[in-house]
Computed example of a mutant assay.
Amino acid sequence: MLEQHKRVIYKVCYLYAGDTAQLDDLYQETVLNLWRAFSGFRGESSPATWVYRISLNTCISFRRKSVRQLQAVTLPVNLEVFDEDDGNRKARLAELYRLIHALGPLERALILLWLEDRSYDEIARIMGMARNNVGVRLNRIREKLKNMSNQ
């Protein structure tokens, strides 16, 4: 299951880490939490939903515990994990993740799930909120990202 959802776990951690060392630590902590929680997985949701939920909770808890708040992203991370296309696409992807990293933790989690083509219903289950609330928040987040990219 870890191998199957490795990219998803990495993406979630990427959005909450301040640098490469933090990213590695957060990824490892997330994998450890998934391993610990696996015996309690009852199959009431899809494995992907369960992995997202554990990953997001781990990252959000990590963020709350963090003493300092990062103002900018300085992640010299290898973006080949996300996409193997041309450099221009990688540059756009890096810019998108930079903008997403500037969002609050809840906004980051919502937009990440949306970018993974999760349905509003699945996002609502993962995040523990109403489906309509997901739609409203995502519209606001997309508008916010658009405004941030135009500055």
Score class of each variant (00 low, 15 high):
G135E: 03
N139D: 06
E95M: 12
E143K: 09
L138H: 07
A130Q: 13
A91Y: 04
L26C: 01
H101Q: 07
N150A: 13
M1I: 10
D85V: 05
K65E: 14
R63W: 07
R98V: 02
Y14R: 01
K90H: 06
W35K: 10
V51A: 01
L145H: 01
Q28P: 06
K90E: 03
E95Q: 13
R118Y: 09
V8C: 06
V134Q: 01
M148P: 04
R68F: 11
I141D: 05
R7W: 08
S46N: 13
N57D: 11
D86N: 10
I126R: 00
D86M: 04
L103T: 02
A91F: 03
A37M: 12
P76H: 11
E3N: 08
I141V: 10
F38Y: 15
L113I: 08
C59L: 05
L15S: 03
W35L: 15
W114C: 07
M127T: 05
L75C: 03
K90Q: 07
Y52P: 01
A72S: 12
G104K: 07
E84T: 07
R42V: 11
D85M: 10
V12I: 06
L34G: 01
N150G: 09
A109N: 01
I141C: 02
L106Y: 12
K90V: 08
L112W: 01
E3L: 03
A94R: 08
S61E: 13
R89V: 13
V51E: 00
L112A: 02
V31M: 13
S61V: 13
A91P: 06
N133F: 12
R68D: 04
E84Q: 04
K11R: 08
N88Y: 09
A109M: 04
R89W: 14
S119H: 09
V77C: 09
L79Y: 09
F38L: 15
V81F: 11
H101V: 07
L112D: 00
M127G: 04
P47T: 15
R118P: 04
N88G: 11
A124G: 09
L32S: 11
R89K: 13
R142S: 07
N132V: 10
G104M: 13
D25M: 04
Q4L: 11
R53Y: 06
F38T: 14
R131S: 08
W35G: 10
W114A: 08
R64C: 03
A17M: 03
L34T: 00
R92K: 12
L113R: 00
S149W: 04
A48Q: 09
R118M: 15
L23A: 02
P47H: 14
I111S: 00
L79Q: 02
V12H: 00
R131K: 12
H101E: 06
A21R: 11
V51H: 00
G104I: 02
M1D: 05
Q4A: 12
D83P: 05
R63H: 07
I141R: 00
E143P: 02
E44T: 15
Y120E: 08
F41R: 01
T58E: 01
N150E: 10
I100R: 05
E29G: 10
A91S: 12
Y14S: 02
K11T: 03
Q28A: 05
N33D: 12
L99V: 10
E122T: 14
N132C: 09
A124H: 05
A17C: 12
R89I: 15
C13M: 02
P76T: 14
